[in-house]
Design a binder for these strands. Structure first.
Lengths: 197, 197
DNA sequence: TCCGTAATCGAACACTGTGTTTCGTTTCTT
DNA sequence: AAGAAACGAAACACAGTGTTCGATTACGGA
């Protein structure tokens, strides 16, 4: 790991700006947050902000990248430990979301920007398409595409519902109910036993 | 019907503005459309715009209301004809969307504002909740709520996928596949045969 | 500890897009 | 034909964004 040792001031400033934005999103919603609000909350000068980020979106995106990095790191770690044991990916994701629920709520919840939800959607969709392909599912192209969107969208929107409502049930319960809802239909349409497992 | 006879100029202006906005949304996306673009396209003066609408959102909302009105009218008409025969609501909706697909794409598609999709979501959610209630489904509250969101979100997102991709299959095919996907799971979780029908 | 360097502040600035106002002109209704 | 209503054009105030620059402060290596 090549840690480009950063100036303490830089760290402090970026941290303060990111936290301020997350807080403000949860309070007033992404669109209503003005740059000036962020500066006041973080106690940072205007020119300093633009020295680090091109705009509000870049600031949030940097936090998103940071999150993705942390997630992948955690994923590698867990995979390393439980080598051999089959890892349940969706449930693993849910547990991670539970752990960082504030951030997820700000990024992907009702008050988020919507743009980030669609980024995540695109990311997950690619993933789901690969899984379908790896299971050798053969369907008319439009059907395969619809199923991929169905799985992606269902998982994502249930996840967003979950965090937006402050997680009214455990990750396990959510996962269990979700599987009971979608597995029978998928089994029927795809003629397979289970995906992911 | 009390038609408040409108000045021809008013009709022409409002029509031109609404059409211009829809066109521009499909071309560059809602957020990228500036008032000035609308004015240029519709060939309408700035002050005239603000004499009719408070802002861009109000303009689109007026078109949405208009659409809702037309839909309800059509719904009443069809219900009147086929009285006695059971009406399949979801399929009916899909056929209507197919008929006005351009408008739906602009309002609810990728390039739309996102705000309108969530309006529609809220509307459909209320509907689905009522259906669940009328079927006397008894589940832990969070489960009932999750199922309601699941049904709503699935229907809505498949619909959006459909119009965004220029309807790669017929309304009937979409409906058929969607039902095959969700009915088995719902039957299992809700212990009922079929909803809507 | 000291010094060069880099980050920060703050204030002023230009710019873009929104919404308002006014007034002269056009076009509808009766 | 006449009064009323809608329209267009231009000027305006305003809010929020992003830039610039010189003075100040804090950091990290020697």
């Amino acid at each position: 790991m090549v840690e480009a040792k950063q100036d303490r001031r830089v760290q402090k400033t970026q941290q303060a700006l990111q936290n301020a934005l997350i807080e403000l999103i949860l309070e007033k919603g992404y669109d209503a947050v003005m740059i000036q609000d962020i500066l006041d909350r973080a106690n940072v000068g205007r020119s300093t902000f633009y020295a680090h980020y091109t705009d509000k979106e870049a600031l949030l995106m940097s936090r998103l990248d940071q999150l993705r990095g942390a997630f992948e790191e955690h994923f590698q770690a867990v995979q390393g430990i439980s080598s051999g044991v089959q890892l349940n990916l969706p449930l693993f994701v849910l547990r991670y979301v539970e752990h960082e629920h504030q951030l997820f709520k700000a990024l992907f919840g009702k008050r988020g920007s919507g743009k980030y939800t669609s980024h995540l959607h695109t990311f997950l969709l690619k993933f789901v398409r690969d899984i379908l392909k790896s299971y050798g599912v053969h369907l008319p192209t439009y059907e395969r595409e619809l199923v991929a969107h169905y799985i992606t969208q269902t998982f994502l929107s249930m996840l967003v519902w979950w965090v937006d409502n402050n997680m009214p049930c455990s990750a396990e319960d959510l996962y269990g109910l979700l599987m009971r809802l979608i597995e029978p239909g998928l089994k029927d349409v795809l003629h397979t036993s289970t995906l992911w497992a």
